[in-house]
């Protein structure tokens, strides 16, 4: 069974996305990147990200991640912000009762795209 299926698939992603996005909006270290008022669009992106981090079906490529974050890198997106994302991701999964072992796996998948996101 894939990690994505083990964590509960699509339904788990829906539950996790709201919790995760709420944490990001409430955190002043990263909330500035979400000033755009298009909440639906942002939620869809968070959902796509969580699906990827859960090891689920996704179409992410190094190039799309670079292109998609280039404007944020210009605004100062750095390692510190990626750390915050991984921190909130872990806290979200903890709230949903996911084991530490699985959280570590999700964090490592998220970490694997760090250089693409930061355009390095």
């Amino acid at each position: 069974m894939s990690l994505y299926e083990k964590l509960g698939g699509e339904e788990a992603i829906d539950a996790a996305t709201d919790i995760f996005y709420r944490k990001m909006l409430a955190d002043e270290r990263v909330s500035g990147f979400f000033d755009d008022t298009d909440m639906e669009g942002q939620i869809a992106k968070q959902k796509a990200f969580l699906t990827m981090a859960f090891g689920g079906p996704n179409n992410y490529t190094g190039k799309s991640l670079r292109d998609g974050h280039a404007h944020l890198v210009e605004k100062g997106l750095s390692d510190m912000h990626v750390d915050v994302v991984i921190e909130h991701l872990g806290a979200t999964l903890k709230e949903l009762g996911v084991s530490d072992e699985d959280i570590a796996e999700v964090a490592s998948i998220a970490n694997s795209v760090r250089d693409d996101v930061l355009g390095r």
Binding site: D14, K47, P57, N59, Y60
Partner: peptide, 27 residues
């Protein structure tokens, strides 16, 4: 379109003939 995986919802369309399947409306 973007993710082609039913996640990003950017490929939404309106079905005007026939019925949408359950899998095409998840989420």
């Amino acid at each position: 379109h973007s993710c082609k995986s039913g996640v990003c919802q950017s490929c939404l369309v309106e079905v005007v003939v026939g019925e949408p399947t359950e899998a095409s409306q998840v989420g």
